[in-house]
Computed example of a mutant assay.
Amino acid sequence: MTGNRFSALLAPQRIGWVAALVTVAVWTTWITTSRMAMQGAQPLDGALLAFLRFGTAGVLLAPFWWRFRIIPKQSPKLALLGLLCAGLPYQLLVLEGLHHAPAAEAGPLLTGSLPLFIALLSATVLGEKLGRGRIAGVAFITVGVAFIMGHGLMNLEGGSWRGHLLVLGGALAWSIYTVAFRYSRLSGVEAAAFVSFWSVVLLVPVAGWRVLEGLQTTAPSLLLRHVLIQGVMAGVLALLIFTLALRHIGAARTTAVTALTPVTVTLVAVMLLGEVPSTLELLGCALVVFGVLVTSGVLRLPSRPSLLAGAMPSANLPSR
């Protein structure tokens, strides 16, 4: 009996669901702690946080980038350039965005706009045809993003609109990485190793003095905390557990779970950071989550909408 219970706990689908939930927890932790780091009594330099993230990941993933001798020979050069967008451009844009915009707004914008940008890039760059459900999901996300940004745009003096634009820039950078990854001929871990190594190489000559100053003036306990959060959790663990979820429960179900990230970020921001989102921003978060679910195919629109038939969207989970 004990052996059967242990086997049930290790069932592939159960592992996949747990991995997806842990991914949400890691993403939520990274966004909220980064906001705290950028807005604390002694704000940390974004260059320092980027160094801690990619430096730690580069050390942990050294066997992989060493195996392909820094530059993977099997990967197209244009794809490798696209992969680098997930390094310094993504990290610095998001961190600077969190300096200006509350986590309760930045979190939904970052995680929710990814399907929007990926769909647009797939259609314009790759020539993919978007289905009706995907187009509808992108429309919901777009309206949700507009609702979240509406308050900041109506109050230009507050400066949160700057954070919104920077975070959207970060989401675009990650979307470019996602499209480039499909043509890189690398595994997820190899891509992370490549991005981590070259991010450190590019960061040191540009902002090495800022990193050195930050290492000297920041308390060791705080540095260790961000080594764990930025480097181990966000830089390595998030990738591994997200890949695990994809392998065991498929992309649609994984996306359905990770669509909870805007909700969890908003809740944590309210409880720990004292942020109070407006009704319009909460409505925007709901539209973003709904749009992500529709875009991923978890929520399906009726094939033939009919007012007489009273057709309503269904919520069937597709199999792998």
Results as ranks from 00 to 15, higher is better:
239 L>C: 01
278 S>E: 08
207 A>N: 12
201 V>D: 06
277 P>L: 11
282 L>W: 10
266 T>M: 13
260 L>T: 11
252 A>Q: 13
289 V>Q: 07
200 V>R: 08
277 P>Y: 02
226 H>T: 04
279 T>E: 12
197 F>M: 15
270 V>G: 00
204 V>R: 09
265 V>P: 01
203 L>N: 04
287 L>V: 08
273 L>T: 11
227 V>S: 07
255 T>Q: 15
249 I>K: 07
234 A>K: 04
207 A>H: 13
218 T>F: 00
287 L>S: 10
228 L>H: 02
231 G>A: 07
238 A>L: 15
252 A>K: 05
221 S>E: 11
231 G>S: 01
233 M>H: 09
215 L>R: 02
272 L>I: 13
213 E>T: 10
210 R>S: 14
262 P>A: 13
225 R>Y: 01
256 A>Y: 07
240 L>I: 12
232 V>F: 03
241 I>N: 10
211 V>R: 08
280 L>N: 08
276 V>K: 12
281 E>V: 13
227 V>K: 00
275 E>R: 11
243 T>N: 13
237 L>D: 01
236 V>C: 04
202 L>Q: 07
233 M>E: 01
243 T>F: 05
220 P>L: 05
268 V>I: 14
248 H>W: 11
214 G>I: 03
208 G>P: 08
257 V>T: 11
244 L>D: 07
230 Q>P: 00
287 L>T: 09
282 L>I: 09
203 L>V: 02
214 G>K: 11
222 L>G: 00
228 L>R: 00
280 L>Q: 14
253 R>P: 04
199 S>E: 05
209 W>D: 15
251 A>P: 07
